[in-house]
Design a protein around this nucleic acid. Sequence first.
DNA 1: AGTTAAAATGACAACGCTGTCAATAAGCTA
DNA 2: TAGCTTATTGACAGCGTTGTCATTTTAACT
Lengths: 327, 327
Amino acid sequence: MKTVSRVINKEPSVRKKTYDIVMEAVNELNYQPNLAARNLAGTSSFTVGLVYDNPNAYYVIDMQNGVLSRCKDEGYELVIHPCTYTDANMEADFITMIKRSRLAGLVLTPPLSEQSSITNLLDELNIHYVRVLSGRPTDDDQDTCIYVNDYKAAYEITTHLLTHGHENIGFICGDKEHKSTSERLEGYKAALADHKTLFNSEFIYDGKYSFESGVEGAKALLADDNKLAITAILGGNDEMAAGALFASRLMGIAIPEQLSITGFEDSPFSRQTWPKLTTAHQANDVISQHAARLLFTKTRGARNQDKDIITSFTPSLVIRESSGPKQ
Amino acid sequence: MKTVSRVINKEPSVRKKTYDIVMEAVNELNYQPNLAARNLAGTSSFTVGLVYDNPNAYYVIDMQNGVLSRCKDEGYELVIHPCTYTDANMEADFITMIKRSRLAGLVLTPPLSEQSSITNLLDELNIHYVRVLSGRPTDDDQDTCIYVNDYKAAYEITTHLLTHGHENIGFICGDKEHKSTSERLEGYKAALADHKTLFNSEFIYDGKYSFESGVEGAKALLADDNKLAITAILGGNDEMAAGALFASRLMGIAIPEQLSITGFEDSPFSRQTWPKLTTAHQANDVISQHAARLLFTKTRGARNQDKDIITSFTPSLVIRESSGPKQ
DNA sequence: AGTTAAAATGACAACGCTGTCAATAAGCTA
DNA sequence: TAGCTTATTGACAGCGTTGTCATTTTAACT
């Protein structure tokens, strides 16, 4: 009985022959260890939680599926935990979740992962967690964070537009509170600087990562018969870019002939517009898979280290029909 | 100890005074029963599964959140199980899931819930389940199914268009294999019949519930300078309606002046188009809440019956700017 | 008050695993 | 081959609940 447990958990000190015998029986009986019993008996838990407050359904599904696929492979259970970070009883909420099912750890996704109040709470409670964050990787948090280098991606998109001759490039930003917003803006600025193009704050519109705000943003940037002479608009995400696209269409502006528009994230949005959006592909499912792997590694401590975990991702430029050379 | 268990499980034979004492302690200590232990010891499980193969992220998130909100209230755990019904080892997949965590039951969502191979398997395995189905309620399945009356909703949308003077109404259908497709088509036909309007099969386009197929559908229906004289298009879902809207725009057709377009489902899609879509609001979160409640009732047997469960929902007409009188 | 039935509480095993530690088998040395 | 060390296996308790059944308390009667 205990030997079977050893085999299942890939513990050392099991003779090859014994291992084979057990595995044969496991396969024949289609044995599946009972998760409740494992969680109850063992010192480590086989349940991880995914916590999110991002309202973007596409994003959430991708994150779920990524974590889930790793969980399946490793025999872990996934508990999903949507929440709103404005929630006053968030602390009680977390504690309840943790008491209910002892968790191996949590995967925190942005923007909630940026909240230090949450990480402090988890540190206090001694709960493992991995954060998915927007930003450039730092050395200190290699074993706790997965970075999505929005800075670099925005730099690349902006460069793409600059090399196509665009100089007056509008930028529709997302929510100010999100780290991704400032990272993307910084990348945009850096690209301008590297191409000796002046930054103009009039080209910046403060949006809300929503379709509507994309519409408003484009209207504002292109107002007064486009007196700013904008020839390209960089959307802070695909949703806003889609909004900008729609607004442009209503104004009778031809895309990409008169105006290039780019998105960010490569969500289904970017393929449901016409023309399809040039964007930065963000592999959310892969990102979340690595987040899960990183969490498993932490949980299991030194043994079973997983060395192939990538902790920094840069969304890659996907050029489609919504952008082209300045005419 | 056992008395606490009785209080937690709302079992009878606990004196009011004892109940209060226990509850006070529970609140003070913020006691949360350990789910793993409950699942292991008890005869009934406190974990339910949500199984889905619908690729629509908005739909899935709504279903998850609805089930989750009930689970939270009732102290249940939710295991999400995305899958593809073409999966050859689906059976093994289900059995693995069931062995891993003993489940109180499953909520099955369409289109997978329409597959009798799955329900047969679950019947064999003696697993409780509740199906969310498209269609008109029947008497036999009152305690196993939640119906979404797409027939009636399509009837209402079609009637809305008919009463606005439209007679040549195109219909962009979804996947043929989905029950919702035929139900919606039947509703459309019934409305036509009741308004003494002839059904014309040329007005029907077979789409795929995707944005792209909506675009194609509108192009086909409005081809040859609209020789069919179509003045309204009924989208099989919002995504296709959004596609149709976009195609119309490209063709220079004014919405709703020259053409009325309606969607189905009232997903965020219907508000991200311009003009916003007239559609049938399908309260997926409420539907899934009731599905969860129905499942809990089944699980707990006779005691704790929940009498307010609605097992039939009719999406309700939401009139927005994409539809208007025939001109 | 004394008796009896019914209601409320408690004692204890069991759920299916894992951790600990003891027992055994295998491998090695002299 | 005895005598040792080390690798492998097994026995048993315990994780935090619930189900069963025994025990105690309360209520309802003579």
